[in-house]
């Protein structure tokens, strides 16, 4: 394993085939290609229903290794079947260690935060040796961005079009996962590729359930110019709305603590999904609440020494 210290340690050669049907400027695809470069082609991705269902459309696949599409609820169960089968084949000497594959679950937030959560919990209970990559674009993107359990408070989605947007709050999936005490949990952002790469390298060297959530800016669902994907991803981290952190060995650590957090409005106002918080009238109370929640998070994080 190469130690990732800076950008120069990132792969310059890209494994994921181009030509996928993902939207131009897709933050999820950006995360996937960065992850794939590090994991390599000796992998089998087990996919759930979401935007990336359509990564492989017969006869086209972007993967140089393997891929299995299951269903929205059960990608971790598919990973269980593949992992167990490979272990059985190894145990019987029917395949060599060189033929073995890493098993990677790939789902969106719709599956990860909701329908697939029981299957993920089960896979962690069973100590399944797998990596889970969630591309979190904070809504049911593939069906036109309806709100999901990952949608942030106040966001306009296809099913929350009111003046104050989505009334619920983004579920803390990181903590739910970490409460299972798996081998590794991390949040990443493809706008921070070095941090992402370090975490994927860490995950790669550990055994057992390893789960990673990538905040994946979505020009189509979040309503911004595709060219802004990285800029918005960076802002999410710099304003503190998307904390970069990892859980291992019972401890949570923040891998990047913004020295001085930028105001959350700077992040919100660049996205059409929050436009109603600024026009025609500025929703000051709601904006203050969103800021207070971010501040509250970081106050707690600092207090516990994370």
């Amino acid at each position: 394993m190469t130690e990732i210290k800076s950008l120069r340690d990132l792969p310059a050669r890209h494994l994921l085939g181009a030509g996928t049907p993902m939207c131009g400027g897709c933050g999820g695809l950006e995360a996937l290609h960065q992850v794939y470069d590090l994991l390599g082609e000796k992998t089998v991705f087990v996919n759930a229903a979401g935007c990336m269902t359509l990564l492989a459309v017969y006869p086209f696949t972007p993967f140089r290794g393997s891929w299995l599409y299951t269903a929205m609820a059960s990608a971790p169960a598919g990973a269980q079947g593949v992992r167990d089968a490979l272990d059985i084949l190894r145990g019987q000497g029917r395949i060599t260690p060189e033929e073995d594959l890493q098993v990677v679950v790939l789902t969106g937030d719709g599956s990860a935060y909701g329908m697939g959560l029981a299957a993920t919990s089960g896979a962690m209970d069973r100590g399944l040796d797998f990596l889970y990559l969630c591309y979190d674009n904070e809504g049911y993107g593939n069906t036109g961005q309806q709100y999901s359990a990952a949608t942030p408070h106040g966001a306009h989605t296809a099913t929350s079009r009111g003046a104050l947007g989505y009334p619920g709050y983004k579920k803390d999936l990181f903590s739910i996962w970490a409460a299972h005490r798996p081998a590794y949990v991390a949040t990443v952002s493809p706008a921070h590729p070095v941090d992402l790469a370090r975490k994927i390298e860490t995950a790669r060297t550990r055994q057992g359930p390893r789960l990673v959530i990538a905040l994946s800016p979505c020009p189509t669902g979040w309503d911004y110019d595709p060219a802004e994907t990285v800029a918005i991803g960076k802002l999410a981290v710099e304003c503190g709305a998307w904390p970069l952190k990892e859980y291992r060995d019972g401890r949570v650590e923040h891998t990047r603590v913004p020295k001085k957090r930028r105001p959350v409005v700077e992040y919100l106002e660049r996205q059409g999904r929050f436009r109603h918080l600024f026009h025609p009238v500025r929703q000051d109370a709601l904006l203050a609440e969103i800021q207070a929640r971010v501040d509250g998070y970081w106050a707690g994080a600092t207090a516990t020494g994370d």
């Binding site: 087990v46 299995l68 299951t70 269903a71 609820a73 059960s74 971790p76 169960a77 598919g78 990973a79 269980q80 079947g81 593949v82 167990d84 089968a85 490979l86 272990d87 059985i88 084949l89 029981a118 299957a119 919990s121 089960g122 209970d125 069973r126």
Partner: peptide, 27 residues
């Protein structure tokens, strides 16, 4: 010989069964 894994639901069970079969073992 063999391996038995209790899953979290029949939906997961049938998924795992199919996934293992398509990896090439007798399920």
């Amino acid at each position: 010989a063999g391996r038995l894994v209790t899953m979290d639901s029949e939906h997961s069970m049938i998924t795992a069964a199919g996934a293992a079969a398509t990896t090439g073992v007798r399920v």
